[in-house]
Structures are given as structure tokens and as C-alpha cells.
Simulated assay, not measured.
Amino acid sequence: MFGTSYANRASAYARVGTETSVDAASPHKLILMLYDGALLALGTALVAVRNKDIPTKGQSISKAINIIDNGLKVSLDMNAGGELAGRLHALYEYMSERLLYANLHSSEAALNEVIGLLTSLREAWAGIADQATA
């Protein structure tokens, strides 16, 4: 009984910590958090594919797709971003399609491809942190 209560309290504490981080984060930091969340979900999916853990694979890939479609893609300003925003939008679409493929076929190659793309974008975004705060 104590274990369940402790687990619930720990989970609640983690949620509060995450919510506090989100509330205090700059728009630039929020995008980094989205990249990190998608990469974490895809790392979990990759391990699940290797372990033939179908439920975890599906949940993790779905979470990554949700972050890409409803976080990263939605955050694009198509008017102000011009051609770059359009290209990122198309790249996010491509990533979601590859993740659907990865889920259907348990494809490590497709997961690794998207992980590589997201990692490159995350590094580039992190590299402009000084410009974003100026």
C-alpha cells in the first residue's frame, strides 16, 4: 500500500516539475523540449522494437508523432517563416509518414532515420539559442 501511494506522489511531483518547466520556459526552450520529448519517445520505441514489445513500440511512436504533428509542426509560423517554414512543415510530414511505416513494419532503419533528422534539427535549434534570447 505504501508503494502505490509513494508512486502516485512521485508521479504527481514529476508532473508538477514538468508543468513548472513548461510555464517558465521561453518559446525557444519550448521547442527544444519538444525535440527532446520526441527523441526520448523514439529511443523508447527503438528499444521496444528490439525487444519485440509491440504495445510500448506503438505508444512511443504515437507519442513522437503527436509531438511532431501537434507541437513542432503547429509551432511553425508559415507567414513569417517563409520558405524555411514550408520546408520544415514538409520535413515534419515526412517524419510522421516514416514513423507510421516504422510502426507498421517494426523498422529500426525508419526510426533511426527520424532520430537522425530530429537530432540534426535539435542541434541547429540549440545553436541559435543566443540569437533567440537577443
Rank of each mutant, 00 (worst) to 15 (best):
A80V: 09
W125K: 10
I115F: 04
A64F: 04
I61T: 00
L40T: 14
E123I: 13
T44R: 04
D130Q: 15
P27F: 08
L46G: 14
S75P: 03
V114F: 10
N66L: 12
A132L: 13
H28N: 07
D36N: 11
L117R: 01
L111H: 08
A124D: 10
F2T: 13
Y13A: 03
K73G: 01
G71T: 12
A110W: 01
G81S: 08
L32C: 15
N70C: 04
A90K: 05
L99K: 09
L30N: 11
S106K: 01
D69C: 07
V49L: 13
E108I: 00
L30S: 11
A48F: 06
A12F: 03
I31C: 05
A64C: 00
S60C: 11
K29W: 15
I128M: 15
E93Y: 11
L84P: 02
G43K: 11
M78S: 14
T56Y: 01
T20D: 00
G71D: 07
D77I: 01
A124M: 06
H105I: 06
L121Q: 06
L104Y: 00
L72Q: 12
G37D: 07
S106P: 06
G82E: 08
N66Y: 13
L76C: 06
G81Q: 06
V22C: 04
Y6D: 04
L30M: 15
A64Y: 04
A109E: 15
A126P: 01
D77A: 09
S21L: 13
G127V: 07
R9K: 05
L84R: 14
A7E: 08
S107V: 00
A90N: 07
D53N: 15
L99H: 08
A24G: 02
V49N: 06
A38K: 11
E83G: 01
K63C: 06
T133F: 07
A14S: 03
A134Y: 13
T4I: 12
M78T: 07
I61Y: 05
L76Y: 08
P27D: 11
R87T: 15
L42N: 11
L88P: 05
N66E: 12
A80N: 10
A85F: 04
L46K: 15
L118F: 05
G81A: 03
S75E: 08
D69A: 09
E19H: 00
A24Q: 08
Y92M: 04
G86I: 09
A80H: 01
N112Y: 00
G116L: 02
K57W: 05
K63G: 06
D36R: 08
